[in-house]
Structures are given as structure tokens and as C-alpha cells.
Design a protein around this nucleic acid. Structure first.
Length: 432
RNA sequence: GGAGAGGUGGCCGAGUGGUUGAAGGCACAGGUUUGCUAAACCUGCGUAGGGGUUAAACCCUACCGGGGGUUCGAAUCCCCCUCUCUCCGCCA
């Protein structure tokens, strides 16, 4: 959620920055109009309330003094005032709702270091690590490897839950589990994050807090208890651990010396991908459920961008250790997610696909999410401020799995396991 | 699912219709005393919105889980909802 004071004070700048994100600048003017209407109603309502409060106090004094007749006369006056106030209250409520709805639908504005651009084609590549693997043989795709080594049973995954759901089997299941454990250990033991294991469902408030709702409600899986339709929408399967973890301190006031908070969490991620084009019935690139280890930071505003760089380095680390080739791109204004002010995407090379796969998105949302969830911190002199909230995948698993097996496949069809993973998998090679 | 208890400021905890935004305590900030630390004492200290100011000061409104109602006036009375806790049942 954007700062309305900023929009009121710098409307031209807000218009320009919103436009850079591919949104219509008119939305600022709509918002300003709604804000003005809202404030006019509030002012009128509060003036009347002040009069009523004063009159009520007088009535109390009159009654105490025994002047019943005078008190009754005043009561009649005030009663009429009450009717007008009730009308205004209703109008204010409606105006507030319209204003809030408009504000909640506006995306975050980009940080000044973010390049302007229209879409992914305008994202500058800022770094590459390693090089595309060369094979002395024709490399297989992850689909072939999964079939031959029986790592994933795509048909049965579909049988169990429908297309876009995976059934890992044998070494595939063990590899998935090993990767989760490896990633958690890396971030917790070596990068100093505090591990949390959150609920895999959250309420709607959490979804609003991180910016998933109201705009992307159709992307979520809404849960219902049995056939009781009144419970539909009370909870949603998490699209990412960011939803529960970033909201851990929602509506709290943290002490400045508690920051930064660094959290790391594993969760499965559920995404309906409504309307997404090209959802493959086979393959692991785009699915409705995948595993992910997520990093979350709550930081002082002045530290937000330094923490973003740290987090990006933390997210890159496992790719380096696993011997994977990847690149980092800086998302341009037109390609960023709704809540982000600045985002790095980390894309890992998948030789069988002949393309880079996004395995991590590392963002600073600045105070956008904090304002939505009313999360603040108190400085030592007692002032409340909004912290920066950062999130980053560290990393997404299904695609990491693809890159890993495609990269480390060998001529005989087996897969070499990189050293850091061997203790978790208790083997150095997966073969039939 | 059944029965009961309860949601008050950063925390604990008083408060059953009229200067109660809310006693008291803790925590926190500033100060005094003091070899240091500690202790004691004094002072300050909720959140949000609107108005106001160069900025403050200041003024107003709302908020005691949420929403309605009664009333001139509600933390306080009534109704609904919600969440938490305890016991029972069921269950991984």
C-alpha cells in the first residue's frame, strides 16, 4: 500500500512513477478524488460529533443540578443531531471503503535504481555465474531422466490430483527431501536465518498484507471445510511461505533493536495459475504445487537495500555450491511484481530445456507490505516507523531439481550428485 | 461436536452508564542522588484520522476483540459474530 500523504504531496511524481510501472496515471487522480471526498465527510461528521459531545456533557451537568426540564429540552435538540450524524457515518463508511479498495489495488512504486522498461525483454542482466555445460553426448531432458530413473511419476501425479501435480518417487522423492534439508541448513546454519515452520494455510488478512489480495485472489486455492460453504475463503493454501512468515509480526510494534529479523522457512507452494497460458501437462517447470525455501527479512528502512544485496547473495549460494550455471537479472519497472520496489530474479540454466529457469525472486517491498499489515517498529525516542520487508526464494525446488539433474547427467544416463548434497542423499550418484 | 471462562494501552492488570484515554504495576526515555553497578526518587510515555503551524505548540474525532442496537451520552447495558483458554468427545 502506498503512502497517501506522499501521493497528496507529490502527485506529479506519483503519477510518473506509477506510469513507469505500466499503470494509468489517472488512477492517482481517482485516488485523490476519493481521498478528498472522504476527508470532507470526515470533517463534517467530526464537527457534528464534537457539538454533540459538548451538548451531552451539558446535559449531564444540568441533570446533576436538578434542572430536569432544561435537560429534556437539550436532549431533543441533540437527538436530531444524532440522526444527521448517523447519515454521515454511513456515507463516510462507503467513502472509506471505496478509497481503501482503490489504494489496495495500486502496486508499489519502483526504487530509483530500477531501470524503466516495459517487460522482461528490458531486464538488464547484471551477473552470470559459471558457464553452460558442454556434454560429449546428447543431453536428455528432465522428462526423459525422470522417466528412465523413475524420479517422478507424472501420470500418477495427474491421477491423484490432476495436471500440474507431481508424484516424486524413489530417488526423486529422496532428492527433493535432501534439497529442502540442504537449503534450510545452509541458510540457517551458515547465513544465520532463524528457521520457522509456518502453517501452510493462511487467512485472507495475511494475503492482503503481502499484496496477494485483493488483486490476485483468483490465483489462490481457497479452502472450504467439508460442505460448509460459509467457511469458503476463511483460509487459503499458501502460494509461498512469504504469506505466513512476512505476516508473523503483523499489527505489532517491534523495538528498533530487534531488527533486522531474518527468517527462513520451507513450505509447499500452491498456485492455481488461473488463466496462465502454456501450463504443461507434463514437466516440472510450471506446476500447481512445488516446494520452496523462502527467506524473509524485516529491516530498518536505511538498511533495506543493503539487506537486499545480502539476501541475493544468500540465494545465489546454493546454486554455486551445486555447480549450476545461472544469471541474475534486475527486473525493470514494467516487469516487477505487485508489491516489490526492486527485484532481482535468479535464473538457473537447464541444458535439457536450453533455457534459463527462474528459481528465485529477491525483492525489497520497502514499506508497502508493512503499511498493509500495520507492522511498525519503535525507535528509542518513541517514534513509530514502518520497516522494510524483504522476501526472496532460497530457492524454488521443482526448477532447481530440473536444472540439477539436467546439468549433472552423465553419458550412461546416471546423475552425479554434487558434494554438498551427498551427505543428505548418502550417495554420489543416482542410477537405475 | 458438547460445557464453561475470557478478550482493556508495548506487557500485566483495575474499572458496570457522565472530565475514564482509561487507576495501579512492569517495561521504556529523560533527570536527581550516588566511587562504578544496583537501588531510590522525580518527570515523561498509547494508536489512528481530520484540522492547524515554516516547523512545533495546539484543537477536534475515533479506538477498551469485530459489527449492530438502546441512550442526550456506552469500556460499562442488549443482540450477533469472532478469537483465545480450560474440561469432555473425536482424531494424526
Amino acid at each position: 500500500m502506498l503512502d497517501m500523504k506522499y501521493i497528496r504531496q507529490q502527485p506529479d511524481e506519483a503519477r510518473r512513477r506509477l506510469q513507469a510501472r505500466g499503470e494509468s496515471a489517472e488512477r492517482i487522480d481517482e485516488l485523490l478524488a476519493l481521498d478528498e471526498r472522504r476527508r470532507a465527510l470526515v470533517t463534517e461528521e467530526e464537527t457534528l460529533k464534537a457539538q454533540r459531545n459538548a451538548a451531552s456533557k451539558e446535559i449531564g451537568a444540568l441533570m446533576k443540578a436538578g434542572k430536569q426540564a432544561d435537560a429534556e429540552a437539550r436532549k431533543n435538540e441533540v437527538r436530531e443531531m444524532g440522526e444527521r450524524i448517523a447519515q454521515l457515518e454511513q456515507q463516510t463508511r462507503d467513502a472509506d471503503a471505496a478509497f481503501d479498495d482503490a489504494l489496495l489495488h495500486l502496486p508499489n512504486l519502483a526504487h530509483s535504481s530500477v531501470p524503466e522498461g516495459k517487460d522482461a525483454a528490458d531486464n538488464p542482466e547484471i551477473k552470470t555465474h559459471g558457464a553452460k555445460v558442454e556434454f560429449g553426448f546428447k543431453p536428455k531432458t528432465h522428462l526423459e531422466l525422470c522417466d528412465e530413473l523413475k524420479l517422478v511419476d507424472f501420470e500418477r501425479g495427474t491421477k491423484l490430483a490432476g495436471s500440474g501435480f507431481l508424484l516424486y518417487t524413489g530417488w526423486g522423492a529422496r532428492l527433493e527431501r535432501a534439497l529442502i534439508q540442504y537449503l534450510l541448513d545452509l541458510h540457517v546454519l551458515e547465513h544465520g536465518y532463524t528457521e520457522v515452520s509456518p502453517p501452510f494455510m493462511v487467512n485472507a488478512e495475511c494475503m492482503v498484507g503481502v499484496g496477494q489480495f485483493p488483486k490476485f485472489l483468483n490465483q489462490a486455492y481457497a479452502v472450504q471445510e467439508g460442505l460448509d460453504t460459509t467457511t469458503l475463503g476463511k483460509r487459503y493454501l499458501v502460494p509461498t511461505a512469504e504469506a505466513p512468515v512476512a505476516n508473523m509480526h503483523r499489527e505489532e510494534i517491534l523495538r528498533q533493536d530487534e531488527l533486522p529479523k531474518n527468517y527462513c522457512a520451507y513450505s509447499p507452494c500452491f498456485r492455481a495459475e488461473a488463466g496462465a497460458a502454456g501450463l504443461q501437462t507434463r514437466g516440472m517447470i510450471r506446476v500447481h504445487q512445488f516446494d520452496k525455501v523462502e527467506l524473509i527479512k524485516i529491516a530498518l528502512p536505511q538498511d533495506g537495500y543493503a539487506e537486499l544485496e545480502k539476501m541475493r547473495a544468500n540465494a545465489e549460494r546454493p546454486l554455486q555450491e551445486l555447480g549450476l550455471h545461472y544469471r541474475v537479472v534486475l527486473l525493470c519497472t514494467g516487469d516487477m511484481g505487485f508489491a516489490a520496489a526492486k527485484t532481482y530474479d535468479i535464473e538457473v540454466w537447464a541444458p535439457g530445456q536450453g533455457s534459463y529457469l527462474e528459481v528465485s525472486s529477491v525483492s525489497n517491498t520497502e514499506d508497502f507490505q508493512a503499511r498493509r499489515m500495520r507492522l511498525r517498529y519503535k525507535t528509542t525516542d518513541g517514534a513509530n516507523h514502518l520497516p522494510h520487508i524483504l522476501n526472496g526464494s532460497g530457492v524454488a525446488l521443482a526448477r532447481l531439481f530440473v536444472s540439477l539433474i539436467e546439468t549433472h547427467q552423465q553419458a550412461d544416463g546416471s546423475i552425479a550428485i554434487p558434494a554438498p548434497l551427498q551427505p543428505y542423499l548418502r550417495t554420489d550418484c543416482i542410477r537405475r
